[in-house]
């Protein structure tokens, strides 16, 4: 029990409780059902992508292209919709684009052997370029009512489709990471890729699956965004990748791979969302909000080091 409380997750949970209690005390609107749903809805694309990014980073890789893939999928949807392609088919094609884009990242990383930082920085620029070419300098809207409703209205009572998708995805990915051989391999490869290869593990195929999943979920997030705001432009998802990576690192996933949990990511998601929502309700401006989140991230890197240092002194 004490070990659990002293762990990083314990610290995150305590932080979350403090923020949550403060919000509930400081603003009367905070605990309303509508606000609690908005709190998730406003960042739903980022938190869905953070779940898969947890796998990517535990695997000792990075995917910077997810924000641009979101934009590409959303713009492809808008462009095809204008050409008269049935919306259902547009959705399928957009998800396929996500898989293909992820496969391109995976192929360059595993077969050509390039670092994922460089490859996905390249596709960050490339996917964004394609997105902007497709919709040029305009916005596309007037999607079918059912599509907009899916993004904006409750599906199960007040709970919208995207939030249900997030919960389902969390449960599925939790089982995969904690209970399956795929999950164990993700940690093993992330800790030491060479050892994993000597042990006869096909690390290339494993990484390929993770990058394709990352592309697929980013495309899905792009479609969710299009439905939520009812319009697309070339800048959809711009810069989202950094917010997603921030959340995952705050959750205790090591940037060097091999360490981290989805529970940590979930706690970090809740901390960031509650912090943003609370500051918004207290009319704290954008610059200060960004600053506070930045300080939180730096603290999340420093605090474990201080604790490690203490432990070394004691020994």
């Amino acid at each position: 029990m004490m070990a659990r409380l002293k762990s990083w997750e314990g610290l995150l949970l305590a932080t979350l409780l403090v923020i949550f209690t403060f919000n509930a005390w400081a603003t009367p609107e905070f605990l309303t059902v509508g606000n609690q749903i908005n709190l998730f809805q406003l960042s739903i694309e980022k938190i869905i992508m953070a779940l898969v990014m947890t796998f990517v980073i535990i695997n000792a890789e990075i995917d910077l292209s997810i924000g641009s893939m979101m934009g590409l999928a959303a713009c492809a949807f808008g462009w095809m919709f204008i050409q008269g392609v049935p919306p259902g088919l547009c959705i399928v094609i957009c998800l396929a684009i996500g898989l293909l884009g992820g496969a391109l990242n995976g192929w360059l990383i595993t077969s050509i052997g390039l670092p994922s930082l460089v490859v996905t920085l390249g596709t960050l620029i490339g996917f964004r370029g394609l997105a902007r070419v497709m919709v040029e300098d305009r916005g596309i809207n007037d999607f079918p009512d059912w599509f907009d409703a899916l993004g904006q209205q409750g599906l199960l009572g007040p709970v919208p489709f995207a939030l249900i998708a997030f919960v389902v995805l969390f449960v599925v990915l939790y089982i995969v990471l904690e209970r399956s051989s795929f999950g164990r391999l993700t940690y093993v490869i992330g800790s030491n890729k060479d050892v994993a290869e000597y042990a006869g593990i096909n690390t290339g195929r494993h990484k390929m699956v993770i990058f394709m999943a990352s592309g697929l979920i980013a495309a899905f997030a792009g479609l969710l965004f299009a439905a939520r705001v009812g319009a697309v432009r070339g800048d959809v998802g711009n810069g989202f990748e950094l917010d997603v990576i921030t959340i995952v690192l705050l959750g205790g996933v090591s940037i060097f791979g091999g360490k981290g949990t989805l529970v940590g990511t979930l706690l970090a998601i809740l901390i960031v969302l509650n912090l943003r929502n609370g500051m918004g309700l207290l009319d704290i401006t954008g610059h200060l909000q960004t600053g506070v989140i930045g300080i939180l991230l730096i603290a999340s890197v420093i605090i474990p080091r201080i604790r490690l240092g203490r432990r070394a002194e004691a020994a």
Binding site: G139, N141, D148, G151, Q152, R228, V229, G230, A231, V232
Partner: peptide
């Protein structure tokens, strides 16, 4: 500054 994307909110 958000074009028609602001409409639902």
């Amino acid at each position: 500054n958000a074009g028609d994307q602001i409409s639902p909110s």
